[in-house]
Write a protein that binds this DNA or RNA. Structure first.
Lengths: 249, 249
DNA sequence: CAAAGCATTTGACCTGGATCAAGGAGCCAT
DNA sequence: ATGGCTCCTTGATCCAGGTCAAATGCTTTG
């Protein structure tokens, strides 16, 4: 079920300079992630601490309430973070892409569940190992604090969205946000990838599938966006969408 | 406009043991706040870094978007944290009581506004001074990270509330939450103090004043709570309220 | 390529909570 | 006390978005 990429490469770790085979030094997510707090020379140490794991689409690898034994760093794919009510109502609290650090909770149990919504790869750190790392690399702790603060700001913005924005404003915010934050690598395009389903978007925005779909349709009819496929949106009128997202218009 | 308490005391700092006049060693909020990460012997250093300031009810002392030059620690009173949309819609993202640390944002500008909803006292730290403190007391940084994580967990819980709970569930959650978290000092009473107005509760729960009021009235009619005054609620049936808050019943 | 199985779209209708509109009730300052 | 606040409650009505119900694709598999 899981494919670990390293298995497909010759394991000649003794013959080549270490960094050639160190999963961290070649990690595409390194630039955005908390790992950037660690110098190249110490990457070997980081690689030795982390366990790379591939996660299939649809697999839940963190369950709310479970004992929080590990921390994760997403290096590929996308993860949906969510909370459930006993009757099945779901609130998606965020989507975590490459570079995102998961498990930032002091408590002994996870406060949310996490499910891969496309083939995903994570680095896993056990709690004691992370503690060691934090002790040895104070810069890492500072970086984690930064990360936590940024997430806090994003969470407050999401509370504003959920508590006070209309359906139109929510969907516009979502699209603009995806364009701004989810695509640090892509060029100055106005194309947004949507690896999640309409249902997951709805659960993220506090709406229903039908309302999300209708709002997309209205934006299309008004020539503000086009949808080449269900998993892709092209933004035609970004200033207007930004205005709607901010609560104007 | 601002009353600094120290000005009202004789400045005999040279004549008495330092801790007698050190605002930190006698601070009621010290136990709950990030300051508990600092040893008693270093409290003088902390006191020298912080500037105590009293804030009148209704005064906004942090404005969203302003340059984030200072950090605050609430030591008395209650602060409302909120975000605004251009047309005046307001989302309260939290209420900060004694011990709460404000300004946990890496960015150069504040991500929210803060207004005292009752007479409040804060300790103010300038950004460079806090940076010095963090450098000298690594335990403080760890404590801040813990704090940030706890707030993140609370924020996710609030997203679930705003995105998926009914008005009844929201109000029940609010009351139960107040009982659990806002009163660490009080005994095992079922009385909840509400220093905020109905309007502020509504803006916190993503509802209107009217809905909050009607929901309180219904809980009263069902003998689940009583309201000795507008600023106080006594919970009569806590298990039931907890159930409603969790989405059962 | 047909059939099954989803995810998505669209339409018709319904409802929880918003909006609009009076009244009460506490709280100063005069 | 009394007038003038502001905050809170309650009632009547409305509507944005939810719910229910059918299509309509879009993949996948045989």
């Amino acid at each position: 079920m899981f494919k670990v990429d390293n298995m497909h490469r010759p394991r000649s770790i003794l013959l080549l300079p270490q960094h050639e085979h160190d999963p961290c030094s070649s990690c595409a997510a390194r630039g955005y992630s908390v790992c950037s707090a660690i110098d190249d020379k110490d990457l070997g140490r980081l690689a030795a601490t982390a366990i790379v794991r591939d996660i299939a689409k649809g697999e839940t690898f963190i369950e709310e309430g479970d004992s929080a034994s590990d921390f994760f760093n997403v290096t590929r794919g996308t993860v949906k973070l969510y909370k459930l009510l006993p009757d099945g109502r779901q609130q998606v609290t965020g989507f975590a892409g490459a570079g995102h650090f998961l498990g930032l909770a002091v408590s002994n149990t996870y406060a949310f569940s996490a499910e891969a919504i496309e083939p995903t790869r994570v680095c896993r750190f056990s709690r004691p190992k992370l503690r060691e790392l934090l002790h040895d690399f104070p810069a890492l702790e500072e970086r984690l604090l930064q990360t936590a603060c940024n997430e806090l700001v994003a969470a407050q913005e999401q509370m504003l969205l959920l508590g006070r924005k209309t359906a139109r404003e929510r969907v516009a915010s979502f699209l603009v946000n995806r364009l701004e934050t989810a695509m640090p690598c892509a060029g100055p395009t106005d194309s947004v990838a949507l690896p999640m389903t309409r249902s997951e978007i709805a659960d993220y925005l506090g709406l229903t599938i039908e309302t999300v779909s209708r709002t997309f349709s209205r934006f299309k009819a008004e020539k503000r966006i086009t949808t080449p496929s269900n998993a892709e949106v092209v933004i035609l009128d970004r200033p207007w969408l930004s205005g709607v997202a901010a609560g104007l218009q």
